[in-house]
Lab assay of single mutants.
Amino acid sequence: MSRESDVEAQQSHGSSACSQPHGSVTQSQGSSSQSQGISSSSTSTMPNSSQSSHSSSGTLSSLETVSTQELYSIPEDQEPEDQEPEEPTPAPWARLWALQDGFANLECVNDNYWFGRDKSCEYCFDEPLLKRTDKYRTYSKKHFRIFREVGPKNSYIAYIEDHSGNGTFVNTELVGKGKRRPLNNNSEIALSLSRNKVFVFFDLTVDDQSVYPKALRDEYIMSKTLGSGACGEVKLAFERKTCKKVAIKIISKRKFAIGSAREADPALNVETEIEILKKLNHPCIIKIKNFFDAEDYYIVLELMEGGELFDKVVGNKRLKEATCKLYFYQMLLAVQYLHENGIIHRDLKPENVLLSSQEEDCLIKITDFGHSKILGETSLMRTLCGTPTYLAPEVLVSVGTAGYNRAVDCWSLGVILFICLSGYPPFSEHRTQVSLKDQITSGKYNFIPEVWAEVSEKALDLVKKLLVVDPKARFTTEEALRHPWLQDEDMKRKFQDLLSEENESTALPQVL
């Protein structure tokens, strides 16, 4: 008996699950189920560990084997000379395990699969056993689809999209007709009724959600790893209520002995410091949205989908001078704002400069500016000194954290500008005749005249004003913003236009 009217009423009120309206889709043409990776026989039982391990490696599972009696060998002398080797079968990115008779397991190899009674669906509900069930008529011709799209860092995100009359449910929550939600590992998919569980979705590319604290899981769906560094790992996640993407940084307390840091400095109150950081608001710094204190720290951040500045300059790639100017102007505005709010970044580098898009002209935002507030000064500097390429001379020669101030950030900005303009770092371990530390503390950077011949004198002058060993003589952010190279009204107008595109209400910060 159909429950279409009941569920449609529920759909009209929406769902609290991570779902959002989605535009129309072009329906895929039908194809045989076997060619799409559906096993030839149905099963109602969950797999054992041996079955799972075989399939996850990209080899055929026991459900897909063919009797050897149906095959015969071709003698080598009868092999056609022009026969080309077969292409290897792509490894599946996800697996659906059937929970009921009449449904088959599915190895997801393609990027898009339609499910329903219509014969054009890649996964067609046409098993005779299924057709005899009382629920068969409640399934729509095109009930739902599972697909994946390219996300940040060229990774993939799996989604389920509801197109049914009676509802598609993920972990008992209604997706909603015309809406989608991301699928995470071990999600249970039910059709027409929330208790009519048909599939379990296994994402073969992500970790299980159960490793994360419950308070975090209640608000966010964790997904793929976006990156990792000395101070922690960053994962893509989704807000459950809105389906908006965020980035979540995970900082290990054990790695940084944060408990010991608190004992050594009783004034170090991470929760208080995070609340201060959350109040920071500038178009060129990453917004801190939320914070969870569990076995590790979880910092929920605004997501930038254009990648890191590092990706644009790695491998001796240089940027156009006009692009360097647009990016560097924004970096200076961001660091100036942090300094005005009493925050020294201490870890400025291309990896911590994020881009809003893949376009050459785009907004940038500074991230990882609050680590000293979370990890403690000593722990952070011990970590950073392991990779000193961007560290100021006074940091390398000081004991502990004494003896330096916000000028350290201006040195790091000078190193970043040098790399963007030239395509190579000013200080490098590859210069074996002088140690990296000695290069930095003496201010002897690697200047290649033929490379810098293409760079304007004004740009080079600003680099020199920032890479000054004496912090008292080094340019401040205010002085850098007043430098002739940055007195470019076309560049500032472009920045204002980019801000307006992102948010019509965002105004250009005042600069002296």
Rank of each mutant, 00 (worst) to 15 (best):
K244M: 13
Q34E: 12
V25M: 06
K235S: 10
T133G: 06
A158N: 05
T59G: 14
P92K: 14
G229W: 05
K224D: 01
R3E: 15
Y220T: 02
P75F: 14
V234R: 00
T59V: 05
V175M: 13
L174S: 06
F201T: 00
F169V: 02
P90A: 10
S49D: 10
K142A: 05
A215R: 05
E86Q: 13
R145F: 13
E107Y: 15
Q10D: 12
F238A: 02
K131R: 15
Y113T: 14
S41Q: 06
R145E: 01
I38P: 09
H143M: 11
P128I: 01
E271D: 07
Q78W: 14
N166L: 03
K235Y: 04
P85E: 08
S67N: 02
M222S: 04
K255N: 05
E84C: 02
M46A: 05
G102Y: 08
L106M: 10
C231A: 05
L60M: 11
L193C: 08
C231W: 15
S53D: 09
S56L: 04
Q27P: 03
E233K: 13
G227E: 15
G232W: 00
K135V: 14
D162V: 03
S210C: 07
V175D: 00
C121P: 02
L106K: 11
H54F: 09
S24V: 02
D82V: 12
S194C: 03
V66C: 08
R240T: 06
V150Y: 05
L174Q: 05
P182K: 06
I250D: 00
S62W: 07
S33I: 07
E219R: 14
I248F: 11
I251M: 10
A267R: 11
S52Q: 13
A91Y: 13
V246P: 01
A9H: 07
P21D: 05
S19Q: 15
V66D: 12
Q69W: 05
E188V: 00
L99Q: 08
A215E: 15
S164Y: 01
R117T: 00
E127G: 10
I38R: 10
F256H: 09
D134N: 11
S35E: 11
I38F: 04
D162G: 07
V270G: 14
T45H: 11
T133N: 06
P92A: 15
S210G: 01
S28E: 13
P152V: 08
T225S: 09
G178D: 06
I248K: 00
E79N: 08
S44N: 12
T168R: 02
C124Y: 09
D126E: 08
R195I: 11
S15N: 05
S31K: 12
D82G: 10
P266H: 04
S28W: 07
K245T: 07
R180M: 00
S228N: 14
K214I: 08
